[in-house]
């Protein structure tokens, strides 16, 4: 016979599944409609009984270039974010320099600046520098999404690394950079991966900079490709939803991977 607590737990699980189903209904709908093809049906049926990949075929024709752009920009933003943020995170975690408190404060504030403010000014700056409609411009701008966040989470992690680990290397004559590069970076690997994954996702999902810092069709991120569909009357929702599904893949991958990286205590083996 079932215990009373078992029944209650089972009921909670069922309620939980119902809540999740309600919350993820739009995601289901996205996938469902994406499989109903490129027709101009007045509405979508509840299940994709006639599965067709026409929507994906159309999406692929329209969006391949934009997907490549998004990939280049997001990977570039990860590289810039990590290159800038990792040494800074280490300095904030370990050194005692005057003015570091202020810098930390500025980083917290920087995350709160509305993107439109940055876009407004960067447009004129990039116009002068010839960085509008370039990968470099988008990469540099998109790193604003990731850098403050990356510095803050990595330095939180690096604070937990025992100072003894680098002091030993310093006594052996290694400079700060050697100690940083050959000890701190490998030990902090998981926090770097977490920071990198989120920087990727932020840049991949970016809308603001794609909208304001590109003007033509040559360099256009996938988010803007989707936005283009949404302007005016949508004739056929299949390709729109297929593009949305494709653009969501990195988030799904992150949801599976980052769980592990956030949870993993990176120090596990390093000190022993």
């Amino acid at each position: 016979m079932l215990q009373k607590t078992d029944v209650r737990q089972l009921r909670s699980t069922i309620v939980g599944i119902v809540l999740l189903a309600l919350m993820l209904f739009p995601v289901y709908w996205m996938v469902n409609v994406s499989l109903q093809g490129g027709g101009t049906a007045a509405n979508s049926s509840f299940f994709p009984t006639d599965i067709t990949f026409d929507g994906y075929r159309r999406a692929w024709e329209d969006q391949t270039g934009n997907l490549v752009t998004s990939m280049i920009v997001a990977l570039g933003a990860v590289a810039v974010s990590l290159a800038v943020a990792t040494p800074a995170a280490y300095a904030l975690a370990r050194f005692r320099l005057r003015g570091m408190g202020i810098f930390l404060f500025v980083l917290l504030l920087a995350q709160m600046i509305p993107g439109i403010v940055i876009a407004n000014s960067l447009y004129t700056l990039f116009n002068d520098l010839g960085l509008l409609n370039t990968y470099a411009g988008l990469i540099l701008a998109n790193a604003t999404h990731g850098i403050p966040f990356a510095i803050l989470i990595m330095s939180a992690f690096m604070r937990s690394i025992p100072p003894a680990l680098t002091e030993a290397a310093r006594v052996d004559g290694a400079g700060h950079f050697r100690a940083f590069w050959s000890i701190i970076v490998p030990v902090s690997r998981n926090s770097l991966i977490t920071a990198g994954l989120f920087s990727f996702l932020f840049a991949w999902s970016d809308f603001m900079f794609g909208l304001t810092l590109t003007t033509g069709a040559d360099i256009k991120p996938i988010t803007l490709g989707i936005y283009d569909y949404l302007q005016g009357n949508v004739q056929s929702w299949g390709p729109v939803m297929a593009s949305a599904v494709i653009s969501s893949i990195p988030a799904v991958v992150l949801l599976v991977l980052a769980q592990r990286y956030i949870a993993a205590g990176a120090l596990g083996g390093a000190v022993k």
Partner: peptide, 30 residues
């Protein structure tokens, strides 16, 4: 605490992680 609680809770993060414009697109049709 109940079976699958943690899995369900982490799957709930999905709307937040999707590109906002993708979520916006499906809502426009809904």
């Amino acid at each position: 605490r109940f079976p699958l609680g943690n899995v369900l809770r982490s799957l709930l993060l999905l709307p937040w992680l999707l590109p906002m414009i993708a979520g916006t697109a499906v809502w426009k049709w809904i």
